[in-house]
Amino acid sequence: MRLATRADGTRDGQLVLVDTAQQRCAAVPQIARTLQAALDDWPALAPRLHARQQALEATAWSGAERFDATACRAPLPRAYQWADASVYRNHARLIYQWRREPIPPRYEDEPLVYQGGSDVMLGPSEHIVARDEAHGIDLEAEIAVITTDVPMGTSAEAALDCIALVVLLNDVSLRGLIPAELARGFGFYQSKPASSFAPLALTTAALGEHWRGGMLHLPVHIELNGQWFGHPDAGQETVFHFGQILAHLARTRRLSAGSIVGAGTISNADPACGNACITEARVRQMLAGVPDEDLHPYLKHGDRVRLEVRDGQGHSLFGAIDQRVVVQSAMDE
């Protein structure tokens, strides 16, 4: 199934089913008005949503409405939880070099995670709004899952069955604020503004052969201002899969249906794959001897970020995140 949340003037939007071509959609208020309502009773409602999709496909989506990705909110415009891991070895290697710190002990023994803000999640076309370019505005291309209820103490294998949907997101970071925040020993907050999501949330069944071993195995295509920036494969060079991340999070507590859990910034060691965040590009440049004044700049007012996952035939799976950066200090000048 392919699900999206259409803006309708309410806080949580309207749940719609979307066809494979991303041309038609249909609301399903008789089943669930919102995605969170569907997740709250996923074992009972997912089969009904699937049956409705099959009925629409049988009639070539006759009577369905035109699908407009730009009218979509994030699949969950607000969520009960947003937790993010860091499972890509190369990203850890480069980021901790940037921070001039060793990789944390036991990095490969148990997932490294933090809990972010989930009260505001941005849609695919909403602006990245920042207060000041000096904060070092960075993108981070990630894959995440949306869960059903995850019992406390669940195993990694059982946790895979608690994945309802898979999503693509841009986990924006303010790099200029991170060092001072982390130095205080209490984690991210101001340095992690709202994340942005592609319009579609897909079931693992809809991903087919591209979902295996608890991960999505496809590259994420990243463009900055219309120029190629990277295409790292989301299923390569990882320390843990999503089942292991969820089991780690549920070790001492259960997770509520509608929790969003990320695997961290996608990163491949091969420089030909490019980068999924600007900081990685800058560290690679520094290691190559590029002087500081020539390093890749962080995002500025008016910059455009585009993220998309395409299958082997070039079809977009989640739709695109296509957004511009708006810096309030630049608007005041």
Rank of each mutant, 00 (worst) to 15 (best):
M1G: 13
R2L: 15
A4F: 05
R6G: 04
A7C: 13
D8K: 10
G13R: 11
Q14S: 13
L17T: 13
L17G: 11
A26V: 11
P29E: 09
Q36W: 04
Q36V: 09
A37W: 01
A38R: 08
D40V: 00
L45H: 04
A46E: 15
P47W: 03
R48K: 14
R52L: 12
Q54N: 11
E57L: 12
A60K: 10
S62C: 13
E65W: 05
F67I: 08
A71Q: 11
A74F: 10
A74N: 12
P75W: 04
P75N: 04
A79G: 08
A79F: 05
A83Y: 01
Y88K: 03
Y88G: 01
H91A: 04
H91G: 07
H91M: 04
I95R: 11
W98R: 12
R99C: 01
R100F: 00
P102W: 04
D109Q: 09
E110G: 02
P111D: 05
Y114A: 10
Q115I: 12
Q115K: 09
G116M: 06
D119V: 02
D119S: 07
L122H: 08
G123V: 10
E126M: 09
V129F: 03
A134L: 11
G136V: 01
G153K: 08
E157V: 11
C162R: 13
I163S: 02
D171R: 06
L177W: 08
L177C: 03
A183P: 06
F186T: 12
G187N: 03
G187F: 06
Y189M: 12
Q190Y: 07
P193L: 01
S196H: 15
F197W: 09
P199F: 02
T203W: 05
L207K: 03
W211M: 14
L216Y: 07
H217W: 04
L218C: 00
V220M: 09
E223K: 05
N225C: 09
G226R: 10
F229A: 14
Q236S: 14
Q236Y: 06
F242Q: 03
G243S: 13
I245V: 15
I245H: 07
R251H: 13
R251D: 12
T252N: 15
G258N: 13
T265R: 05
I266K: 01
N268K: 00
P271G: 06
A276M: 06
R282H: 02
M286S: 09
V290H: 07
D292R: 15
D294H: 15
D294N: 12
D294Q: 15
L295K: 11
L295W: 07
P297D: 04
V305P: 00
R310F: 06
Q313I: 05
A320D: 03
I321T: 10
Q323S: 11
R324S: 12
V326P: 00
Q328N: 14
M331F: 01
E333D: 12
